[in-house]
Design a protein around this nucleic acid. Sequence first.
DNA 1: TTTCGCAGCGAAAACGTTTACGTAATCCTT
DNA 2: AAGGATTACGTAAACGTTTTCGCTGCGAAA
Lengths: 346, 346
Amino acid sequence: MNKKQVTLADLAQQLGISTATVSRALKDYPDISQETKKKVLELARELKYRPNSMAAGLRKRESHIIGVIIPSIVNHFFSSVIKGIMEVAYEADYRVMLCQTDESYAKEIADTDALFASRVDGLLVSLAHETQNYDHFDAFRDSGIPMVFFDKVPLDNAMPGISKVVVDDYQGAFTSVEHLIQQGCTCIAHFHGPLSAYTSVNRYNGYKDALKKHGLPQHESLLLECKDITFDEGREFVSRLREVHPECDGIFTVTDAVGMGAMMGLKAQGVHVPHDIAVIGFSDWQISAIVEPHLSSIAQPSLEMGRRATQLLLKEIHANKEDIHFSPKTEVLQTQLKVRASSKRR
Amino acid sequence: MNKKQVTLADLAQQLGISTATVSRALKDYPDISQETKKKVLELARELKYRPNSMAAGLRKRESHIIGVIIPSIVNHFFSSVIKGIMEVAYEADYRVMLCQTDESYAKEIADTDALFASRVDGLLVSLAHETQNYDHFDAFRDSGIPMVFFDKVPLDNAMPGISKVVVDDYQGAFTSVEHLIQQGCTCIAHFHGPLSAYTSVNRYNGYKDALKKHGLPQHESLLLECKDITFDEGREFVSRLREVHPECDGIFTVTDAVGMGAMMGLKAQGVHVPHDIAVIGFSDWQISAIVEPHLSSIAQPSLEMGRRATQLLLKEIHANKEDIHFSPKTEVLQTQLKVRASSKRR
DNA sequence: TTTCGCAGCGAAAACGTTTACGTAATCCTT
DNA sequence: AAGGATTACGTAAACGTTTTCGCTGCGAAA
């Protein structure tokens, strides 16, 4: 049913010139007189000519599309990253093709293949939780199509020569625990994430090193693992924690959902935050500044992460096109401590 | 620097057959022997052949891409919708190209043009706030490329013959106000959005009709307009409201951000929620079940909206391809009242 | 005059598929 | 054994651009 589209050939025929000239006129290439250029542009507008980027892409061997693969989209962090990506992509006149893995390795493979089939000019990836193997990126590798990983990136030695953008989880965790100590906490627990995840490990280490630096006690029983990283886990774990460590006066949680759960659990038990126990989260969700008491947190520059990753990718794409060398970079973005009521004891 | 890709011609040459046969083998079309099919598939795997969907798209005049235009992505409602879209699209083997307008009319036009240039097979749109004119969709119109609007849709008479998926804002508002009345509220205010927006108008009307049905007083001064629909507006407006209507005992807000702001404002004034004033929001943000007191709200089926819109679009795409008539539908999804502490007075 | 340069344009090939059409070989009818 | 049907494949055109190369005509330099 689709009515046929207006093509270069149509314009060319009506003007009695060749498609080559029409193409030159529309893209304002050299070798074209102002006169015919004007005529072409006029007719193009009149006939509502719309370029076909599939045809152009096929011929030029580039799509002006960048592919994005993320674990989840219903998530403040990732949706901010995507916003950053789209901002920069739009500025550079690139389209964005989005895929969501739902943390599934199989889906990640399918998405990678589909994006390659679409001949995207570059790929931005945050790995799925399940992913341990990186062979599905070989197609991009072998074809020399640039990739930039962000947030959840491959293990250090796994993909040499690939650019990455990550957040300094270790430093963020270290800073927040040190902040608790400065607020007078002497027995600090950590509700951490699964240690299979890179980010969880870094935060875990930041926590431990901060305690070590200040000579505070470390106990296995101060460490509780949130397998699913949920609000409910936070709420339940505080009971378990206080049975073993009634003297505990500070909690650092792997993310704000857990932190808010912990605060609710404590409130239900009649424990005052921050007076009895100070709480600090991670990621600085919008909610954190609204919930009572306002939850202290570590802000991750999510928008910035999307922007940087895309800028890196575009640079690499252009370097490729100009045939000049591009040396892969790893950018580490700094976090920001947001001190709010939940941790203010002085 | 991109190494050249493996093409059908490469496979054909190595096997001493024609590209036509290779193409048939790979897409398991008829007119092919099991024997050569097997040989082709083997060589394809060996040489790591990857189809080029730009070439296929150009030839078949379809891209297997659907374009999505939304006002904002950093937003729980829209990111859920997108998730629903991507789920259905993925099942049907379609890719998703995403654009974000940031509520800008100009950006919406640019996005529409770009998606048309990419020759997407269909378009899903939630209109920008600024958009009053729909001419930029003419290209899709004229070419007979299906579009489905969702959430923020064109005015009724503006685009006849176009499918839409909306939420029953009127009924949701009506239900929530009736709920307040059942809880004993007798003087209910409404913090509404700009009445240029369809959704705001429907909620506004639902509010008014619920009051009318139950014979409650209606005053202009009970209506406060949130131009930007923000937390801060909610917080500020309660002071203004209580100066004029100290007897007010219920507030229905156009969305949860405003509702939460109102609750904070009331709390700051020492007004108890829900005892003195009951509050109910709209949209059921994740935060609402966490903030204190838990905010009652109207849940919108966002995931479902994305799914339905995409299903409609795909149906229309396929109907188009088979050259059978498709009559546009408007689906109205029902909301769900979530009663929480902020409105429970009995 | 010749020679060169240059501006403006066209012819045609390419990009990698899909597909309408034709054809040769094989098989099954009667 | 002649005729038709079927199977499996090749030829070549098409999709809508971009781009290389070459050509023409004109003016300026020699």
